[in-house]
Design a protein around this nucleic acid. Structure first.
Lengths: 198, 198
DNA sequence: TTCATTTCTTCACAAATGTGAATGAAAGTA
DNA sequence: TACTTTCATTCACATTTGTGAAGAAATGAA
C-alpha cells in the first residue's frame, strides 16, 4: 500500500473509493542529494511525503545566515511532521515560500499537488479531513517550536532536544543541529562539553 | 450585523442561510478585567472573538516565568489574529491548554463553541471554510512568531516590532512587550535607549 | 594506505542579555 | 493633597552567547 495512504489511514478510515481517489492523485518523485526540493521565493504547490532519504528545511535571514527549521526523514525515529516536505505557509496561501528544503541524500517521495488536493477534498467529506489533519499537524509543530524558542535559552533547548529527539544528533551534522537550536556551532560544542561532565 | 459574521464575510461570501446558521450558534460573553478567559491546563472548547477590551495570552515556563504570546484587541490597529481568544492547539485537538488568556480590561466577546463549529461545518461546504480560514490565520501567525524568534536577536525583534506594530507600545505596558519579545524588561529599556539616540 | 576536505572542538575575547538594586515617574487611592 | 503601588529606567556586574582562529578528529577521495 502507498505509504501516504497508510499515513492518512492512521487518522481516518478511508472507504475503498476514497482510497482509490486518493491514490489516483498521488505520484512519485525523486531528487538527488543537494537538490533544492522547495526553493525560497517560489510558490510551494505540492506537498511531498518522504519515503526515503534525509532532507532539511531552513530559513535564510537578511544577512544570508541559514537557520534550520526542521529535519525530514522517514524511519523508526521519525515523527509525523518529519515526513512532509512543504512550506505549509506558502502552500496554504499559494504565496512565495520563505523556506528552502534541501535534499541531504537522494530522496524518494510521494507528491500531492495543491490543485489535486482541492479536487479530492470537494469529492469526499472524509478526504477533506486529510487537509485538516495535515493542517493540525503543521500547526502543532510550529506552535511547539515557537514556544520553545520564546521560553527557553540555548542550554534548555539543547536539553530538550536530548530528551525529545536525541537521535537527531546521530543523523545530522552538529552544525545543522546548532542552527536548528538557534545557536552558533561553537556554542553547541560548549554546551555539550558542559553537560557531559558536571 | 454580528462582528464575527462580518469578519468571516471578508473571506467568503455567505448565503442568507449560512449567515443565519452561523449567527444561531454564536453567543455573547463578557469578562471583567483580571478574569482568566482561557486557563492553562483546561481544554479550550470555544473560540472567542473580541468585540471590545484588551487581553493578552501568555505561557508560563517551568520556573513560573510568564511569556506573552500575543496581545488581543479589536480596533483600527488590530490584525486578524488579535481578535481571537483561543489556544488553537488545545482547541484543535481538545487537549489541555498551554496558554493562559487574561483580560487586561473588561471584555465583550462573541463565542463559538467547538461542538457548534462541528455542527455548522457539516451543514454547509461554505461554512466549513470558516474553520480553514481560522486555521490558516492561526498558522501564519505562529509561523511568523517562530521565524522571528529563530532568526533574529533581541534588538532586531524590537526593531521589527517598531516597524510592524509600533502601536503596541502605547497600548500595553513595557514589561508585557518585553515578555512578548522574549527579553527582560531592563533589556528592553536598554534597547530603547540605544535606538532612540544613535 | 595517504592526502585533502570537512566538521568538531577548544580557546580567548567580544558582544549581547540577564539580574538585582536603586531611583524616579506615573498612576491609583484615601 | 499626600500616600501607596506599580512601572520604567538606569547602573554595575554576572552570565550567556557569538566570533574568529587554531588545532584535532572524522570523513571522503585517490
Amino acid at each position: 500500500m502507498n505509504q501516504f495512504v497508510e499515513f492518512i489511514s492512521q487518522f481516518i478510515s478511508l472507504s475503498n473509493e476514497d482510497t482509490i481517489a486518493l491514490e489516483n492523485v498521488l505520484s512519485n518523485k525523486s531528487y538527488k542529494a543537494g537538490d533544492k526540493i522547495v526553493q525560497e521565493g517560489s510558490i510551494c504547490n505540492s506537498i511531498l511525503f518522504t519515503v526515503s532519504g534525509k532532507s532539511r528545511s531552513y530559513f535564510v535571514n537578511h544577512e544570508g545566515q541559514e537557520f534550520t527549521w526542521n529535519f525530514h526523514f522517514n524511519d523508526a525515529d521519525s515523527k509525523f511532521e518529519n515526513y512532509f516536505l512543504v512550506d505549509y505557509y506558502s502552500f496554504l496561501r499559494q504565496t512565495p515560500s520563505h523556506l528552502t528544503i534541501e535534499a541531504l541524500e537522494d530522496i524518494e517521495a510521494i507528491t500531492l499537488s495543491y490543485t489535486n488536493i482541492q479536487k479530492i477534498v470537494s469529492k469526499s467529506i472524509n478526504l477533506e479531513k486529510v487537509a485538516s489533519i495535515m493542517s493540525a499537524t503543521a500547526y502543532e509543530n510550529v506552535h511547539k517550536r515557537a514556544f520553545t524558542l520564546l521560553t527557553s535559552n540555548a542550554k534548555e533547548r539543547y536539553l530538550q532536544l536530548l530528551k525529545d529527539e536525541p537521535y537527531l544528533l546521530n543523523k545530522f551534522q552538529h552544525y545543522l543541529i546548532a542552527s536548528y537550536l538557534g545557536v552558533a556551532p561553537q556554542s553547541l560544542s560548549r554546551l555539550r562539553k558542559e553537560i557531559s561532565k558536571p
